[in-house]
Design a binder for these strands. Sequence first.
DNA 1: CCCGAGAATTAGCCATGCCTAAACCTTAAC
DNA 2: GTTAAGGTTTAGGCATGGCTAATTCTCGGG
Lengths: 229, 229
Amino acid sequence: MTVRGVSATIEDYLKAIYDLGESGVKTQSLADALSVSAASVSGMLKKLSDLNLISYEKYRGTSLTPAGRRIALETLRHHRLIETYLAEALGYPWHDVHDEAERLEHVISEDFERRIADVLGHPDFDPHGDPIPQLDGSLPNPGGRPLTELPLGQVAQLRRITDQRREVLLYLEEQGLRPGETVRVVSHEPFGGPVTVAYGGKQLALAEALAGSLYAEVTGSLDTTSESA
Amino acid sequence: MTVRGVSATIEDYLKAIYDLGESGVKTQSLADALSVSAASVSGMLKKLSDLNLISYEKYRGTSLTPAGRRIALETLRHHRLIETYLAEALGYPWHDVHDEAERLEHVISEDFERRIADVLGHPDFDPHGDPIPQLDGSLPNPGGRPLTELPLGQVAQLRRITDQRREVLLYLEEQGLRPGETVRVVSHEPFGGPVTVAYGGKQLALAEALAGSLYAEVTGSLDTTSESA
DNA sequence: CCCGAGAATTAGCCATGCCTAAACCTTAAC
DNA sequence: GTTAAGGTTTAGGCATGGCTAATTCTCGGG
Ligand SMILES: [Mn+2]
Ligand SMILES: [Mn+2]
Ligand SMILES: [Mn+2]
Ligand SMILES: [Mn+2]
């Protein structure tokens, strides 16, 4: 599933295009995502286009070709398998796996990938609940809905946190709000007000934007009790 | 124990100087070790000298400064810990660990280093029997003598293989000749002739140069029986 | 002591990626 | 429809690390 002769930089560009939406991706959003100037992005897009890894119309945005998507998914598979391995096998805390994986993803062999996937039992999701691209190129369905869209009182299991910021993950970790936790939305104030969620015998009020990046899967039934302990 | 702002390339140069003897290292031997032109080495030596990582007299050879040695040992520690981890934790065969470690050594964090060292119980030697530089900068004593210098019939335990070539390691692996094995030198023909070694109920004739890269530690007493089964 | 062979260094280039400043599209507001 | 602002691309550079060819040094033999 790997392609040789592609630099780590190219892998990062393709991965960024992939998670920026795969098509119609703008130069500036890539520049922001990669912490690089827009001019640098323009230059690289030209190059990626020549390599047939993206289709690119000047001033119009870009999208991945099948070859480009293959490399993006391969790199993402490396990234998420490594994150999972660091957490499961080496006891890394949740919020530290990303930076380490960001570098390792570019240098591991296919053999390494295979071996950690074996040790982990070929997992579908990484520690943040993000789906791990499979060998056949498919992505497991993450399921779940954002807390902001869960009916009040609905019992659900936390599945995924899409916010990538380290400090945010650290905060959620400290609050004990992690994938697997059983949660219930207690209240959601209007006009962008906070979302209060109950779990593990405590309650926490989250900014609406943050609540929107937490995905939970409905498991139990509706709990109509008013705000419990 | 790490130094930031040193490229992977620089780490490899310093590591190469270190295991080429640490002092009086010639340009051409570095070029050979790194598969790079002598001109490239000259350029890099100039740069390393400016960084105070080596002392360098043009046309005269080079040696590591304390700062350079520190980075070399740090990189070597990464390399050998990774090799050990790949073998112990991920089931890598002996002869495959080197190439993977050669890339990983430059990208792991100090945290990663600490965690795999913990998992492994802070080992002194890597799978080839090479000493792993310790956190205080010391190197465990590998002990042992080359098979070529062992008295005939002397029972000893194989400790280390200094030959780095993959195919050689693969051959020894196939023959079941690995660190830990109990061995005995049966004969050593003169004028560069082969060294025959007995172990695990079999015998194997090795080229003298190869036998010289196998180190064994005397454990048992002299076995004076003529060539046993 | 001198000279030539071979080792080492310098000169001049190339590829990658990144940067700033300048030029150039696109588009939304008038 | 113009126009100007904002986003994008091009122009021109820089740093890193590699290469080949030309030059320079070292050292052993005569
Ligand atoms: Mn990366
Ligand atoms: Mn792979
Ligand atoms: Mn290396
Ligand atoms: Mn280290």
